[in-house]
Computed example of a mutant assay.
Amino acid sequence: MKNKILILVGIVAFYSCQNKDNSKNIVKTIVQDTLSKTIGGTADLSDAPPRDDKAVALIRKQLNVLLKKDLLSMTKENRYFYYEAFDLNNDNKNEYFVGFSNSYFCGSGGCSGYILNSDGNVINKFTVTDFPIYVMTSSTEKFYDLIFESGGKFHHLKMKSGKYPSNPSVQEVAKGNVPKESTKVLDINSKKLEKYSF
């Protein structure tokens, strides 16, 4: 709701700064359409995930430490990441799913990535996975269970001793389809996530 109000305020401010002769102004039409959808609750705000510069800086700093030995052999094209924030343990602090989509981090079995806590420390490194990842409503050790796709199958990952398993492909195959109430994160293939360099 807070995001909708901020968007509404921004739209009104933008609209008020427009030229007074708006009869043929395409911006006016777009603003009015967006305004009516926002007020009516039908605007799709999921297309533009909020950018968190602090999170990007934190992840970038941690990747430069974690991948220090790899940096010399990586090309510029391989030095980028995607991320998505999600509070995995309901402590009101986001954890960060960090994924890659290039030949250095991906192979025939899938891609690698990380789950970082709110301070940037590694909770998990994972391998051989396809994106997106699904966060379930069930939990183990106060952390939500996850579903990773690997090798064309969905695998159920549960927290154990403070870690999720790092290789999803050897974990229990999830029974049935991904539950509808699960939340999709790190959907790199949707082209909606921004790419960041490190």
Rank of each mutant, 00 (worst) to 15 (best):
163 K>W: 01
152 G>W: 15
145 D>I: 02
169 S>M: 13
155 H>D: 02
154 F>A: 03
158 K>N: 11
151 G>C: 06
160 K>M: 02
149 E>T: 15
177 N>K: 15
153 K>R: 14
160 K>G: 03
177 N>T: 14
177 N>F: 11
162 G>D: 03
158 K>G: 10
158 K>Y: 08
146 L>N: 13
146 L>K: 06
152 G>H: 15
171 Q>V: 04
151 G>H: 12
156 H>C: 04
155 H>G: 11
168 P>G: 05
147 I>L: 08
176 G>L: 12
178 V>L: 00
165 P>M: 00
167 N>G: 11
150 S>G: 14
144 Y>F: 11
152 G>P: 15
171 Q>K: 08
165 P>N: 06
177 N>W: 10
173 V>M: 04
144 Y>I: 05
177 N>S: 12
146 L>Y: 10
174 A>Q: 11
174 A>L: 05
176 G>K: 10
174 A>C: 00
149 E>Q: 15
172 E>A: 12
175 K>V: 04
162 G>N: 07
157 L>S: 09
160 K>T: 13
155 H>E: 09
155 H>L: 00
166 S>A: 14
161 S>P: 09
147 I>C: 03
162 G>F: 01
144 Y>N: 04
161 S>M: 08
160 K>F: 00
165 P>A: 02
162 G>A: 03
149 E>L: 00
153 K>E: 13
173 V>Q: 07
175 K>F: 12
151 G>R: 01
158 K>S: 14
161 S>H: 09
176 G>F: 04
160 K>H: 11
169 S>K: 11
150 S>H: 02
172 E>P: 12
152 G>Y: 14
166 S>K: 10
162 G>Y: 07
145 D>C: 07
171 Q>M: 06
174 A>T: 13
155 H>F: 08
155 H>M: 07
171 Q>F: 06
157 L>E: 08
163 K>Y: 12
157 L>F: 06
159 M>K: 15
150 S>T: 13
158 K>D: 13
177 N>A: 15
164 Y>L: 00
151 G>M: 09
169 S>R: 11
165 P>C: 02
178 V>P: 07
170 V>S: 08
162 G>Q: 10
161 S>A: 06
150 S>M: 06
176 G>E: 11
149 E>M: 08
159 M>D: 13
167 N>F: 08
171 Q>N: 10
149 E>S: 13
158 K>M: 11
173 V>I: 14
162 G>C: 00
168 P>W: 02
172 E>G: 08
168 P>A: 08
156 H>F: 12
147 I>A: 04
150 S>F: 05
151 G>L: 05
156 H>S: 04
153 K>W: 14
148 F>M: 08
163 K>R: 12
166 S>Y: 10
144 Y>E: 01
147 I>S: 03
148 F>Y: 12
175 K>I: 07
155 H>N: 07
145 D>E: 13
151 G>V: 05
163 K>D: 03
162 G>K: 07
172 E>H: 11
161 S>L: 07
159 M>R: 12
154 F>L: 00
144 Y>G: 01
164 Y>A: 04
167 N>K: 05
155 H>T: 01
145 D>V: 14
145 D>S: 10
177 N>M: 04
152 G>L: 08
147 I>K: 00
154 F>G: 01
172 E>W: 06
167 N>L: 06
163 K>Q: 07
178 V>T: 12
161 S>D: 15
178 V>F: 06
151 G>T: 13
147 I>Q: 05
168 P>Q: 03
171 Q>P: 07
173 V>E: 13
154 F>D: 06
158 K>V: 14
144 Y>S: 08
164 Y>N: 09
149 E>N: 04
161 S>Q: 15
